[in-house]
């Protein structure tokens, strides 16, 4: 019997550990989390008034201007902000197509009448392709454009941006805003106005 066991010991161990680590552990975590953090564990979803899912609070979506604040460029496969295939451009710093692309994006903002320095996050793609945030400066930069298209005063918009950015913990980086939250707040503001 002992001998029999010692031959199969590795297999028995694998089976035991697969049960504990591969089933019991994730299931316990899943159960615990659905009780403790039901919203977060299911993706921090944002719902439409009709109950359908608009998106996730923490996954970036591809807004276009000038009605809305625009997020960062995204280099995901199959078009920008493709949540089912995350990833960055993986272009090297001296890769000419990357330089060209960034130049194009810079031109884009310049053509919209933006002068002065452009924050790098606004013209460079994020690592995940799903970055939900932009830097405070990148948001402020867009205020004149939004103000023009929505006809809301820049001062109000700036304070809106500041309020939104204060919601974000920023001990690792400069201040930033969540683009989805900002744009929702913008819509709410528009309705009020």
């Amino acid at each position: 019997m002992n001998r029999y066991i010692s031959y199969f010991r590795p297999v028995i161990y694998i089976v035991i550990f697969t049960l504990i680590l591969g089933f019991v552990y994730p299931l316990i975590i899943t159960m615990l989390s659905s009780v403790l953090f039901p919203v977060q564990s299911h993706g921090s979803l944002v719902f439409n008034s009709n109950g359908s899912v608009a998106g996730s609070k923490i996954i970036g979506i591809n807004f276009t201007g000038p009605q809305y604040f625009v997020g960062r460029p995204s280099a995901t496969n199959g078009g920008p902000y493709n949540a089912s295939w995350s990833g960055g451009s993986n272009y090297g710093p001296t890769y000419l197509p990357l330089i060209a692309k960034i130049k194009d994006r810079t031109e884009f903002w310049r053509n919209l009448g933006i002068e002065g320095e452009i924050p790098s996050d606004l013209v460079m793609a994020s690592g995940s392709g799903l970055d939900p945030d932009i830097s405070l400066n990148a948001a402020l930069l867009q205020v004149p454009l939004i103000s023009k298209s929505r006809n809301i005063s820049s001062v109000i918009l700036e304070s809106l941006v500041n309020v939104e950015s204060n919601r974000q913990p920023a001990f690792f980086s400069g201040r930033y805003v969540n683009i989805f939250a900002l744009n929702k707040a913008l819509d709410n503001l528009s309705q009020e106005v």
């Binding site: 994730p26 975590i29 899943t30 989390s33 659905s34 977060q40 564990s41 299911h42 993706g43 921090s44 979803l45 944002v46 439409n48 359908s52 899912v53 608009a54 998106g55 996730s56 609070k57 923490i58 996954i59 979506i61 591809n62 807004f63 276009t64 009605q67 809305y68 902000y81 493709n82 949540a83 089912s84 989805f180 744009n183 929702k184 819509d187």
Partner: peptide, 24 residues
């Protein structure tokens, strides 16, 4: 905000000018 579930991928509607996504 890290997720933990066995839900199928979610098709979202998008918001404003932003189109919908498939959230894994």
């Amino acid at each position: 905000g890290v997720i933990q579930n066995f839900d199928p991928y979610i098709h979202t509607t998008g918001y404003g000018t932003a189109p919908g996504q498939i959230l894994p």
